[in-house]
Write a protein that binds this DNA or RNA. Sequence first.
DNA 1: GATCCACAGGAAGGGTTGGGGG
DNA 2: CCCCCAACCCTTCCTGTGGATC
Length: 338
Amino acid sequence: MEQNKIIRDLRVLTEEFIPSRILHRDSQLSSLKTSLSPLLSDSRPRNSFLFGPPGTGKTSISIHVAGELKKQIPLKFAHINCWESYTRHSILYSALKGFGIFAQRKGTPTDDLLEEFRNKSKGPCLIVLDEIDRLEECEILYDLMQAGAGLIMISNSENALYRMDPRIRSRLSSTENIQFSRYTDRELSDILSDRREWGLVPGALSRQQIGKISLLSNGDARTALGMLSIAAQKAEEKGLGKIPSSLIDSTLPQAISGSMKRILESLTPHQRIIIDILKGGKKGSGELFPSLQKECSRQGVDEMVNRTFRKQMERLVRHGLVSFEGEGRWRVYSLPEP
DNA sequence: GATCCACAGGAAGGGTTGGGGG
DNA sequence: CCCCCAACCCTTCCTGTGGATC
């Protein structure tokens, strides 16, 4: 295979890559380590709630800290995305999978999975629940805590825990709240420089270009890394020896739509149609439902019953993809501000 | 004031799905 | 291959709410 001119290691340029050195998150890192330190003496850690805008390092530092702990103790660890696993059953299943135990998914009662989890989570145990506001059955938090697991809960919204059942909330009252704010341009530049060192061939990207990406990404490391990897791949495809600045400008919309695309791909056809309709402006149920039916028959998608439509709306609202104002029959749905 | 209407949302039940066992 | 099991999704049926209409 021909030697790459731009990319040395593409993995380093993705948000999934967890660097061994976390930059510009010192206070959050030390708060989290303090909360989790009881694990080292086989005691129950303090639960943590990490909140802040997307791309500010919440998931990265959670996985990083878990990795550090694993080097010192036999930690049971699982990272669960509540967007994908939002029921009690699927969370228990994912947790066991994170421990390396492949339970039978279908056909196993939730209580049996819980029993299995209780048995297998003995000793130091840490569960990261990402996008916790997507969770549909909050009792699972109670179950996990009861089994002795330490929790790191992550959300973009500061109020994610307020919306939970008061009983669960009181169990979470001693939770350590750790806030993440957007990176400054300079901090983002440092992060990108660090990744450039391992991910790109020397000389492929200039300091000025890093500054430009940082400026355009508005403090969001996910967008910044998205821009960097898209630009690098395009330049590589073209057989160039350096990333041209013109390419960087054109990657911003792609990097942003890339994260939006992932969300849209996870939607059902019905949910996608509802969002498309709401792009045309806010609507009440009385107007939205007939529009949905009409659009479904036009697109050859099965029509749904009114009650199912309301359940779908409930879910879209909970997922933050649709917002509403007004109560009762005067409720009006719209798309949230980006 | 009684009734109607439009909508929200709970409860129950049936269909589908996917993995295991006979 | 077929049946069983349990989760999960959708539908049906129902109750509650509050403004509009008679």
